[in-house]
Design a protein around this nucleic acid. Structure first.
Lengths: 152, 152
DNA sequence: TGACAATAGGCGCATATGCGCATATCCAGG
DNA sequence: CCTGGATATGCGCATATGCGCCTATTGTCA
């Protein structure tokens, strides 16, 4: 058991940890608010994407969410179960077409209010401009190509 | 690349979504590298914290990781199973004391190399200075208090 | 000392996350 | 038409994530 010095003052220089911690923290805030509408943040994002981008295949939606195909494939199940979206046949016998239902639309309207509450609370604390700057940086992170061995 | 239409030029103004997407993306990069050492990023973080902060209780470690108590409580299980850390008795009959084992130390040494690869690759792509700035912003996010109804 | 708040954890439940492997289609050549 | 590669998805496995509810201990104070 060496004594290495507590090397304090070093707030975890790991970019990944910093991101995950912040994501956890903020997700809790948004989940707290969206919970009143019976949705998780991921679910809210999915429904929003569907509303904005119209019917999409699983692969398309997954890409637009920067999410693994299989992750999304399972994430939509509770949403279908609750009748918020429909999983129909696509142009192809392989593809499926995801579409928002009327119930989903209605739910989204309610949730949008709650989302606004969360968003407002976050930006009130963090700063509206800082938030915009942060989102911009995060967007760049999200679209990074890295070495090419693990592209987006 | 995909990203067909600028769709109203609004790149998801949701702070939470932006964070989660970036976290997913970067986690994949770090997981890819750390996988060679048989660790996930979260596991690497846990072991690193333990090494730096010495034996800790579950609650203490959870707080320092900005993670739910129960989440951590379960996350340490695979690590204990593989003999990387020990779960012993604390000062109290209630608390447990988590400590890194020799095996854990060794594994951490190997993983540190891989972590460096990931870190280097990320910063090469994103920019070293930008990364530092981003971490700083994320740290602030992590320690936000919000309304007080959902403190850190 | 005996009730009570506070503290430390565990467990069930439900979702989130993605890798590797397998299956069903579709498409472009031969 | 037949075959091989590309495409779209599913499933098993394992971890990650946190909420609500429950138990065990501990500290406190009348």
């Amino acid at each position: 058991m060496e004594f290495k010095e507590p090397e304090t003052a070093e707030p975890a220089p790991c970019n990944c940890l910093a991101l995950r911690q912040a994501a956890r923290r903020v997700s809790q805030l948004y989940d707290f608010h969206l919970g009143a509408a019976g949705l998780r943040t991921t679910q809210y994002s999915i429904l929003t994407k569907l509303k904005r981008l119209g019917p999409l295949s699983i692969n398309e939606l997954a890409k637009s969410m920067v999410m693994d195909r299989t992750t999304l494939g399972r994430a939509i199940r509770p949403l279908e179960r609750d009748g918020l979206l429909k999983i129909g046949a696509g142009d192809d016998a392989r593809t499926r077409r995801l579409g928002l239902t009327a119930v989903g639309q209605a739910r989204l309207t309610i949730a949008a209010d709650k989302w606004n509450d969360a968003q407002r609370e976050f930006e009130q604390s963090f700063g509206k401009n800082d938030a915009a700057t942060l989102r911009s940086a995060l967007l760049r992170v999200t679209t990074l190509d890295f070495d090419g061995s693990h592209p987006a």
